[in-house]
């Protein structure tokens, strides 16, 4: 079985700088494996180990996503090999475009049975790209996945629904987006990181992938900082905590919220 883990190399928005006019500067923010993606690596590895499968990591983005540290960070998480598309033409690409490029790469890898992804990316957080990827491939897509096992030629997926858990059997290839707590990812140790250096990485050429050119359908109008509301911002004097507690309590009782 060939399992692809589609992950993102992205920066945490906390490290980005937002100007007073709402423009976002990501230049000082450092990329890393996106927060919830390690869960996908773990699920993929567990699945592969139960059926003698192979795990291929896949990520796409701007040229800067390909560094020795970035390769090790992925390959040390239970991958057998890594595939990347690292091209500055993808800088700022929207989710549908990213999904299209991922689909092109999955087709280029060939014979893929399942793609596993994290719940959402740390820097966008729309929970959408994995499902768009499924559609781009013409495959089924399932969200909120907690577990996946192989049963003959099918995949048996456990996914959360309102009020419970369903078991869904997929008769063909499928893209699965895992919940953020589907598995506790193991932390790569020295052994895994050393081993990572011995595993192959293939960088695919964006132009050679079978992906339509992006259509410019969105024009930016304006940006703004989020309205954080008019809060009072009363800082209580921490030098005398009992008095501060009393003052706070009185104020909260007064306004009726306590």
């Amino acid at each position: 079985m060939k399992i692809v883990v589609a992950y993102k190399w992205a920066a945490n928005p906390q490290d980005a700088e937002v100007g007073p006019d709402g423009t976002v500067d990501w230049s000082r923010a450092k990329g890393a494996v996106s927060e919830y993606d390690p869960v996908a690596f773990e699920l993929a590895r567990v699945l592969a180990d139960t059926c003698a499968g192979e795990v291929v990591g896949l990520t796409v983005g701007a040229a800067a996503i390909d560094t020795p540290l970035a390769r090790k960070a992925a390959l040390s998480r239970g991958l057998d090999s890594l595939v990347m598309v690292a091209d500055d033409a993808l800088r700022g690409a929207d989710g549908t475009r990213i999904a299209a490029v991922l689909a092109g790469a999955v087709r280029a890898i060939g014979d893929v049975d399942v793609v596993v992804a994290g719940e959402s990316s740390v820097d966008v957080g729309d929970r959408q790209v994995a499902m768009t990827l499924a559609a781009q491939l013409g495959w089924a897509g399932l969200n909120a996945v907690r577990a996946v096992t192989a049963d003959g030629g099918s995949l048996v997926v456990e996914r959360e629904v309102a009020g419970g858990v369903e078991t869904v059997v997929a008769g063909g290839p499928v893209v699965l987006a895992a919940t953020a707590d589907a598995a506790l990812p193991r932390v790569p140790g020295m052994k895994e990181i050393l081993g990572a250096a011995k595993k192959p990485t293939q960088v695919l050429d964006l132009a050679a992938l079978d992906v339509p050119a992006p259509a410019d359908t969105i024009a930016p109008v304006s940006t703004a900082r989020p309205d954080t509301g008019n809060r009072q911002g009363v800082m209580l004097d921490a030098a005398d905590l009992p008095a501060a507690a009393a003052q706070l309590t009185a104020a909260l009782r007064q306004s009726g919220v306590l």
Binding site: T67, P68, L69, K72, A73, G189, M190, I193, A197
Partner: peptide
Amino acid sequence: ASKAEEAGVFLMAGV
């Protein structure tokens, strides 16, 4: 650190 990597040092982060 990247200069060290270029010279052949194996950089291991997060450990």
